[in-house]
């Protein structure tokens, strides 16, 4: 198994990046980079870590990017 596959396998079980790094014994930055890789390939999605910290998040969302969950129901999010 490669680093990429290992990260995907552990993340699939519900591990956070920090937990995945601990489980695999690798740098957390490497895990984040691997998650970024899988996200770019469309295999993985990352819900936002924090509700929109700026008021414009919902407005700025483009059609190809999922809305933050906390934007649900926001009329500003209508595109």
């Amino acid at each position: 198994m490669s680093v990429l596959d290992d990260v995907l396998r552990v993340t699939r079980t519900g591990a956070t990046p920090a937990a995945a790094a601990r489980t695999l014994g690798v740098d957390e930055g490497l895990v984040l980079a691997a998650l970024d890789h899988w996200e770019r390939r469309g295999t993985l999605t990352r819900p936002p870590a924090r509700a929109d910290s700026s008021c414009s998040t919902c407005v700025a969302t483009t059609p190809d990017v999922p809305l933050p969950l906390a934007c649900t129901g926001c009329p500003l999010a209508r595109r």
Binding site: L8, L44, C55, C74
Partner: peptide, 29 residues
Amino acid sequence: EPLVLALPAYQRPALRPIALSVGVRVLAF
């Protein structure tokens, strides 16, 4: 299609941004 959700770490909610964002949404509604 297989999909993996990468979970964020738990964290303390940031109340001020939430209040601002809720205010904007309510006004928008």
